[in-house]
């Protein structure tokens, strides 16, 4: 074969292997311009939530429940793992919606990356990698803040951070698939945010146990990765008493959501970039 071909083959090796990293790097670069805002909100938000839910709402709830608290613990201990998971889900629902469509349409960086030797799978992988990174970092800060205030009694509580990151992916991978399929902005992201993300967040046993809801509304929680993530978090954070099979169901649900979402997302991104 000619030397030009050899050269191209060699030049293509690095992108082939590490393409997803390059895509993630691009996103991290953009993220840096928002870093100041993000750091303030990553530290400030959990403090605020503790102030609002731990102290404020806790007083009301405590007056209602008596000394037993919620699920056998103080209200803010009950809420803390859910706050961490919610933070991750919020990041996923921000990053996997508008910016994805932006990258395919208005500022078509993904098309540009694909014109360079990066495969559609790596484009999707890079996005996922970046969001995982951002979710992980943010949740770690959240964890440190709430733990500093004694809201995480057990040492295994640190596992809330990877659990929350997994929750973000379980929530986000299907969302990525949806967003990558959108060709025009007709306000559908606002709709998805309001009628899908919001109820899945609100009816998912974060601020109160799911059983408090009327039976008709409870299935909403079962469908919500956030419920599974929060419950897992509670098990590791304060040893919430859940049967082993249920813990397994939570974990499996998260993994299945993330995997199926990922597979569909790769297919859609490939179709989008290669048609």
């Amino acid at each position: 074969m000619s030397s030009v071909t050899d050269e191209a083959m060699r030049a293509g090796q690095a992108p082939r292997r590490f393409g997803a990293l390059y895509v993630a790097e691009h996103h991290v670069r953009i993220w840096r311009s928002y870093l100041g805002v993000n750091v303030v909100s990553a530290i400030g938000t959990p403090l605020l939530y503790l102030l609002a839910f731990g102290i404020g709402l806790g007083v009301l709830v405590g007056a209602g429940t008596g000394p037993g608290g919620v699920d056998g613990v103080d209200y803010f201990v009950f809420v803390a793992p859910a706050l961490i998971a919610t933070a991750a889900v919020t990041i996923a629902s921000d990053e996997f919606t508008y910016p994805v469509m932006m990258g395919f349409k208005w500022n078509p960086i993904y098309l540009g990356m694909h014109a360079a030797p990066i495969s559609p799978r790596q484009v999707a992988g890079g996005i996922v990698l970046f969001v995982s990174l951002r979710a992980f970092a943010t949740c770690l800060v959240y964890f440190l803040v709430v733990a500093a205030f004694g809201a995480i009694p057990l040492a295994t509580g640190v596992l809330t951070v990877p659990i929350a990151t997994l929750t973000a992916l379980a929530f986000g991978a299907p969302l990525l698939a949806y967003s990558a399929a959108q060709r025009e902005d007709k306000g559908q992201f606002a709709v998805v945010q309001r009628v899908l993300v919001l109820p899945l967040t609100l009816f998912s046993g974060t601020l109160f146990p799911l059983e408090q809801l009327p039976v008709v509304l409870q299935p909403l929680g079962w469908l919500s990765p956030l419920w599974h993530g929060s419950e897992l978090g509670r098990v590791v954070a304060y040893g919430a008493d859940r049967p082993a099979w249920l813990v397994l169901v939570h974990l499996l649900t998260l993994v299945v959501f993330a995997l199926v979402g990922w597979l569909i997302a790769v297919r859609i991104v490939t179709r989008r970039l290669e048609s």
Binding site: L57, L60, T65, V70, G187, V195, L202, F203, Q212
Partner: peptide, 29 residues
């Protein structure tokens, strides 16, 4: 404009009301 978007604006506070009012309300009374 897209009417689904307009209407979805209504449901947002209603979800909050149902979730917190009912779920949390059960504890708080």
């Amino acid at each position: 404009s897209n009417w689904v978007v307009v209407i979805s604006g209504f449901v947002e506070p209603i979800f909050y009301l149902l979730s917190l009012g009912i779920g949390l309300g059960a504890y708080i009374g």
